[in-house]
Write a protein that binds this DNA or RNA. Structure first.
Length: 504
RNA sequence: GGUCCACUAGCUCAAUGGCAGAGCAACUGACUCUUAAUCAGCAGGUUCGGGGUUCAAGUCCCCGGUGGAUCACCA
């Protein structure tokens, strides 16, 4: 380890402690309460008019120090909150107080024992009778100073550079309370989703992350290799094909919350690994899934936010069911003045787009052109929670046809603030039809090899044993958390977002 | 990958092409109810890296790095 000038000073303090026979990184602590618990007990006793003295040994990180001649104030912070330490020569003696002033710094983990009191200015504090270093911090926290005003932490010149915040998330979390709050919210979101689905009789399962054949989505996979088996394997791009195998096996309602990996560009809404929820619901169709989705998201909002409305990107979004429903074909007629039913081929659609002076990538499959139209003309307008439904068959190889409409499948996507949140469909369960779709996809995507759906023979075999009709659903948890925490970049809701490797 | 923007002390930020600065943190000292404590003093720099233009470059130009926004790719 190389020390900066400031680090050297702190390291020397640790060395000095050792020279005096005090361990700066002791093995055990005597902490017997959290700061919040100590304050709560004190206030309860006070309210009851109790004269009893309340003592505690508290542990935490030194976040502020105010030294005076024969006394000192400090704040320590633990996972539950903060408390002020009141240190006087009266209780500690000159030598101990001096030792604190000389050897203790902001950022150190310490423990302090004494009585809980209220200071003259009214703040519940620990009148310290003894204290001990628990872990000397060598590197100073990247915050200049902070204070507590009316219970609110007010920071001054704290870590703000996004790169340092993401690369050294530990430091970001240590000094930025609202960042910790985002991840507490995230944990609550996941736990609320589990509550909801468990309650509805869904079984949580875990399926392979390392897969011999990837599938279930149109995305480029990460490729790796198993040395002993001499086998190329892929990190999953979705859970879909494995979860549906389980419905063949008799699990009627299954879900998985886990990580997907996609070897594609990163952006404010894309990270190479992200957390996905997928569930499959036997004997249901996409309309039932739509209703369950609304219900589930509302449940999460109720539990986590306490209201069904959130302000995101300056707009109030209302998640109260039912969400708006927009037919895909109709939305394109409304927004782009193109009726895709009148253009059954890519050529015809291209000509129409050309004639209207629209942006598009020539030479794409019809489904991809429709995707481009949606992205350009429709999706940005879907601000309030909205389901767009009935997708073209050729970009939905795992979804079931709409009865009587061979070019359309029963599929919907949920949008919020123009961003896709979820994707669901009535699942295709006819093995012959599925094989045909795989072959079609293979042809259409020939040019972009990696994105085509590779034929998964074992999946077809599973289906040929008989797969119950079902509705399936997938949702990006990170994006839901973004909306619920008001964050506009996915990196703000990922503890350790992927960044380019840095040589330093 | 394209375009634009940013990168200066531990942190947050200044500095017409003309001596590289402030606040907080650190360090030395004063101070027995403070809470951005206060007061006095002191120290701290590869201005992201490399090259160029110029009497003179943090500043202008070129190449590179990292990040951000945006577009492309992609759900």
């Amino acid at each position: 380890m190389e020390f900066t000038e400031l680090e050297k000073i702190r390291f020397d303090k640790a060395q000095q402690m050792r020279a005096e026979g005090v361990e700066p990184y002791p093995t055990r602590t005597e902490v017997n309460s959290t700061t919040a618990e100590a304050i709560r007990k004190f206030e309860a006793a006070e309210a009851a008019g109790s004269q009893e003295t309340l003592t505690a040994v508290l542990g935490g990180r030194l976040r502020a120090i105010r030294l005076m001649g024969k006394l000192a104030f400090a704040h320590i912070e633990d996972g539950s909150g903060r408390i002020q330490l009141f240190m006087r020569v009266n209780e500690l003696g000159e030598a101990e107080l001096q030792r604190f002033k000389e050897l203790f710094d902001i950022g150190d983990f310490i423990q302090a024992g004494g009585e809980i009191i209220r200071t003259r200015t009214g703040e519940v504090s620990l009148l310290v009778r003894e204290f001990k270093m628990l872990a000397k911090a060598i590197t100073p926290l990247p915050a200049a100073k902070d204070e507590v005003v009316d219970g609110q932490v007010v920071r001054h010149a704290t870590l703000a550079d996004p790169e340092t915040r993401y690369r050294q998330r530990y430091a970001d979390l240590a000094v930025n309370e609202e960042v910790r709050k985002i991840f507490r919210t995230r944990a609550k979101v996941v736990s609320a989703i589990r509550d909801f689905l468990d309650e509805k009789g869904f079984l949580e399962v875990e399926t392979p992350i390392l897969q011999p054949i990837y599938g279930g989505a149109a995305a480029k996979p990460f490729v790796t290799f198993h040395n002993q088996l001499k086998q190329q394997i892929y990190l999953r791009i979705s859970f879909e094909l494995y979860l549906k195998r389980l419905t063949v096996g008799g699990f009627d309602r299954v879900y998985e919350i886990g990580r997907d990996f996609r070897n594609e560009g990163v952006s404010f809404k894309h990270n190479p690994e992200f957390t996905q929820l997928e569930f499959y619901w036997a004997y249901a169709d996409y309309l039932q899934v739509m209703k369950l989705t609304e219900e589930m998201v509302a449940y999460v909002l109720d539990k986590v936010v306490g209201t069904r409305k959130v302000v995101y990107d300056g707009k109030e979004l209302d998640f109260t069911p039912p969400w708006k429903r927009v037919n895909l074909r109709q939305s394109l007629i409304d927004r782009a003045e193109i009726d895709i039913n009148e253009h059954p081929t890519a050529e015809s659609l291209e000509n129409a787009m050309q004639a209207m002076g629209m942006k598009f990538k020539p030479g794409e499959a019809r489904g991809k052109l429709i995707g481009q139209l949606l992205e350009e003309y429709v999706e940005p307008t879907l601000v309030q929670p909205t389901f767009m439904y009935d997708y073209p068959r050729d970009i939905s190889p795992l979804a079931k046809n709409k009865p009587g409409d061979p070019n359309t499948v029963e599929r919907f996507e949920g949008f919020v603030n123009g961003m896709e949140l979820c994707n669901a469909f009535t699942e295709l369960n006819d093995p012959m039809e599925q094989e045909k779709r795989f072959l079609e996809m293979g042809r259409e995507y020939e040019a972009e090899d990696e994105e085509r759906h590779p034929m998964d023979e074992d999946y077809l075999r599973a289906m040929s044993y008989g797969m119950p009709p079902q509705g399936g659903f997938g949702m990006g948890i990170d994006r839901l958390v973004m909306v619920l925490t008001g964050q506009k970049n996915i990196r703000e809701v990922l503890l350790f977002p992927h960044l380019r490797e840095r040589e330093d």
